[in-house]
Simulated assay, not measured.
Amino acid sequence: MRKPSDDLHLLFDTPGPRARRRIHIATAVSLSALAVLLALAVRQFAAHGQLDRSQWWMFAQWPVLRFLLDGLGHTLLATAVAAALAFPLGGLVALARLARSRALRAVARTYVELFRSVPLLLLLYVFLFGLPSVGLTLPVFWQLVVPIVLGNAAVVAEIFRAGVLNLPRGQTEAAHSLGMTYGQTLRHVVIPQALRALAPALVSQLIRLLKDSTLGYVVSYLELLHQAKVLGEYYHAVLSTYLVAAVAFIAVNAALSRTASWLESRRS
């Protein structure tokens, strides 16, 4: 069974002893520089009182932790709902782009190009200010989720379409030779294989969804970053509160990255 590293060897020569030595030296220098920068940052934090007990004592109180955990729960809820809507919608748009109808392909391509080009922040402002001006006001949760869905569905559509186009043509031709129609071939042969191949990429897309949810402050959605802002201003400990929120985001993103790596190893 071929491994991903086998394909990489087709593109790059295996490093020799001198190249490996240079790689090790560059890695050591980079890690040393990173350690120095981290030490300088800690020193500056200490010099400005950011490591004092007054900046951290509140995180030992359960009401404060519950306040942040509620924000994290809202963040994960928005991410999960957005993913549950964006992934199927992206799949449908990808199928429309692969359809035989020229008009359907044109509509799907217009959607993808439009929502890949428009910044998410601008979409949020449209739902926050534009729609209410014409008499349509969505709940705060959907003012955040719907723009995220529209933007990420366009990205998912291109990921899915690329995965379908990268499948070996022989399998499609074999399905046609068995008498399957175009729709049956997509449903029974192409789509299941594309989903298995794209599972790591789709899990990685969840990281983008998670980061997009931090724009919830625009619509006053009580996600983690919004809660950290409120808490930091209340206790006059903005930096320490944002650092705690950053650790929470890093932990969730690390779990998603590990899931993507596990799926990639299972696929290989």
Rank of each mutant, 00 (worst) to 15 (best):
N152A: 12
A153D: 03
P147E: 10
F129W: 10
V134R: 05
L136Q: 10
G163H: 13
P147R: 07
P147D: 11
A175S: 14
G151L: 01
V146P: 00
G179M: 15
F141I: 07
G170C: 07
A175C: 05
R161I: 05
P147N: 09
P132Y: 03
H176G: 05
V145N: 03
R169G: 11
P168G: 03
P147H: 09
A154K: 11
T172D: 14
Q143R: 15
G135A: 03
G170T: 07
L167I: 13
P168I: 04
E158R: 14
P147F: 07
V164R: 02
T137S: 13
A153W: 15
L144N: 07
S177V: 11
L167W: 10
E173T: 12
V146R: 00
A174V: 09
L138N: 05
A175M: 03
G151Q: 08
L131S: 04
H176R: 15
W142R: 05
A153R: 14
L144W: 03
V146T: 08
V155D: 06
L150G: 00
V140H: 06
I148K: 02
V140A: 11
G170D: 00
W142G: 04
F129R: 03
R169I: 09
A157I: 11
N152W: 01
W142H: 11
E158C: 06
A175N: 02
L165D: 13
V140K: 12
W142Y: 13
V140I: 12
L138Q: 05
P139N: 00
R169P: 04
G179C: 14
L150Q: 00
G151A: 11
V134A: 07
Q143P: 08
R161D: 10
G179L: 14
P147C: 12
P139K: 00
R161K: 15
V134Y: 06
T137I: 09
V140G: 06
L131E: 11
Q143N: 14
V164Q: 08
E173G: 02
S177C: 13
L136P: 08
G130H: 02
I159S: 08
A175G: 03
F129V: 02
R169F: 02
S177N: 03
A157W: 13
N152V: 11
L138S: 06
V145D: 01
G170M: 04
G151S: 13
T137E: 14
S133P: 03
V164K: 01
H176Q: 15
V164A: 12
L138T: 06
F141W: 10
V134K: 04
V140R: 15
V156P: 01
S177W: 04
G179R: 06
L138C: 07
A175Q: 02
E158T: 07
L178P: 00
P139C: 00
A157P: 14
L167E: 09
V146D: 01
V155H: 13
E173C: 04
T137K: 12
F160A: 12
T137F: 02
G130S: 03
P132W: 05
G151R: 02
V134H: 04
V145I: 08
L165P: 09
L167M: 14
T137R: 15
Q143A: 10
F160G: 07
L131I: 07
Q171F: 02
L136R: 08
R169T: 12
P147L: 09
A175I: 07
F160R: 09
N166G: 08
L165G: 10
V145C: 09
A174R: 14
S133G: 04
I148H: 03
A157E: 00
V134T: 08
A154P: 10
E158K: 12
A174M: 06
G135I: 02
I159Q: 14
